[in-house]
Amino acid sequence: MASTVLTTAPARAPRWLAFLLIALAAALIVATPFLPNYYIRVANSLLIYILLGIGLNIVVGYAGLLDLGFVAFYAVGAYTYALLASNQLGIHLPLLAILPIAAVIGAATGILLGLPVLRLRGDYLAIVTLGFGEIIRIVINNMDWLTNGPKGIPALDRADMLGISVARPSEIFWLLLVTCILAGLAVWRLQKSILGKAWAAIREDQDAAAGVGVNTTNAKLAAFAISATIGSIAGVIFAASQRFVSPESFSLQESILIVLLIVIGGIGNILGIIAGAAILILLPEVLREFAEWRILFLGLLMVVLIIIRPGGIVPRSLGPDVLFKSLFRR
């Protein structure tokens, strides 16, 4: 029997490809801080979206739940920083204190939003999360006494960590890079843990997952909470780097953009997120002269990619671990 089976080879990448990609990443990381500020800002924006992608991917890629309101958590983090480090409320906490606070608030929001909606599936879940995202934006827009409404909160504090300034683009770059790597590692280990297996089972067949003893509600809540925490932290860093927040940054289109970068890059894979973010963030920068055409192009790209490559650019099995293993093979 066994001989009749086509055994698929374990996932591996050609050695030259692995070498090329890793060398490219390393070169970019080392070179970026020495580039003009404009390029560093683009790199930072890229890293923020990678971080957001890592967060949302837990829910969308691992657990298979389409969340179209992810930007809500991003907004929660950004406004947490804005309110705790500006003259808006007269509170000036350091970044290191705000990060854990934002993480907790993010997780709590994730659980609060998750509790009622998680028994819905598929398209209904998508539309409800979309509704929640919009509600949060409308509330921020209208709670003038707290959030200063559509005008936003300006002049946020310059962030620093234990006396080291984290305000200039190159400094934010290092903070973002470290955060991305930590988040990526944590999420990668989560995926390999029993919880990650449960998420995959929920993605594949929710009822059968419950049938083998997975408490699907808890597992989904965990996914929502962890994803919200990462989104919230991304929001804090975003606010600290812009030193200004307004509801405009948290529109539905942002949510869609983040879903899009996961789908384009390859659902469920960190390398896919990086590829997706690179396309969606760098391409518009390259096409800057055709400013208004780029979103038109993105819409088209989305349709075309979903049709010709529904699994995304990077295959699910090709993770960073595979890349490194291919490099040191034999």
Partner: peptide
Amino acid sequence: IRLFDQMTVLDNLEVCYYADDAGLA
């Protein structure tokens, strides 16, 4: 048949231990 189609054969069985191990994930 309701298997977890895009998970490996091993993972299909391993996930059954969720109830025991989730608390220490």
